[in-house]
Simulated scan of single mutants.
Amino acid sequence: MNWFGAAYYPEHWPRERWKKDVRTMGEIGINVVRIGEFSWSVVERKRGEIDFSVLDEAVDLLDSEGIKVIMGTPTCTPPPWLTKEFPEILQKDVNGLVIASGSRRHYCFNSKIYREETSRIVEAFADHFGNDPRIVAWQIDNEFGCHNSTVCFCEDCAVAFRVWLKKKYGSIDKLNKAWGTVFWSQIFNDWEEIEPPRRTLTSPNPSLVLDYKRFSSDSAIDYHNLQREIIMRKSEAPITHNLMVNFTEIDYKKLSDSIDFVSWDNYIVGDYDPDLQALNHDLMRSLKKQPFLVMEQQPGRVNWRTVNPSYESSQLSFWVKQSFAHGAFGSLIFRFR
């Protein structure tokens, strides 16, 4: 069965509106929605006080119209109480400055504390929804790499980077030779001398920078797999992550080995180019050589660019049909209402 649906956030709307929303979904032929991926502070308002009643009620209402659910894990948005309790989970930028909370994707993939907190909340989601037949898939986190969030320069990353380098090169001498550290007197004698490529007076060693980007991609994938392993123990539903073709910080081919089907978010970058969008769909199909899902389809005009072009109302229909023509098995509009 093909999927047609939308992202839906019941927590954004008054409860008395939910029934009308779901009834409208049924009337227009929606058969699947994605929920949950930004819900951490709703589900766990305070540490340890986990309450799934909002999501439970939404799933029940959706089921009343025969609508299935893709459940998102909420780790893209650690709540304010968590970042206040553990500010060390926040990323640091290339200047070594802390990236404040208050937006999204502000956590570090290599933070031991955040990985523990991730395991705890994902375990709770998987325990609660893992055997629910109305949950037809899981989305882990949301848009790895969005907002240039893959590369962090904190101390947790520095430690993890050295472990990654030891595994790759085996000896410090082999690393020195591969990186050409004899240039500018950069020869290392010990792994602890190696730091992330933070801001330097001029260009840092390009081999260090390249390896750090590869390490950062592997860190995102390892973090994904942390969640995947938890969910797989509790649920038989397939697992995915929503990719983005214009985010080049993560090795999508490697990540695709850890998802059961490819999904991606189809937003128009610059002027709409039908040939480029066709290529993007083909790229996504190529990752697993299987049909894919458009997890987020731009609905028309968006409101978050410097310039937000308007489109004819017929354009959305074209975009959805184009995705199916290139091998999609479903399309979810971002967002309902």
Rank of each mutant, 00 (worst) to 15 (best):
N2F: 12
E16Q: 08
K19S: 09
K19W: 06
T24M: 07
E27G: 09
I30H: 00
R34M: 12
I35Y: 01
E37N: 14
E44R: 04
E44S: 07
R45L: 12
K46T: 14
R47K: 14
F52H: 07
D56G: 01
A58H: 01
I67K: 01
I70W: 00
P74I: 05
P74H: 04
L82D: 02
L90H: 01
S101G: 10
R104Y: 09
R104P: 05
I113C: 01
I121Y: 00
G130L: 13
E143P: 02
C146R: 05
N148R: 11
C152A: 12
E155C: 01
A160W: 00
R162T: 01
W164Q: 02
L165I: 04
G170I: 05
S171F: 11
T181N: 04
F183C: 03
F183K: 12
E195T: 11
P196E: 04
P197F: 03
L201Y: 14
P204A: 09
P206H: 11
D218G: 05
I221G: 02
R228L: 10
M232W: 13
F247V: 14
E249D: 15
D260P: 05
S263H: 15
W264I: 04
G270E: 05
D282I: 03
K288Y: 14
P291D: 10
M295A: 15
P309T: 13
Y311F: 15
L316P: 09
S317N: 13
Q322I: 02
F329R: 09
S331W: 00
L332D: 00
F334M: 07
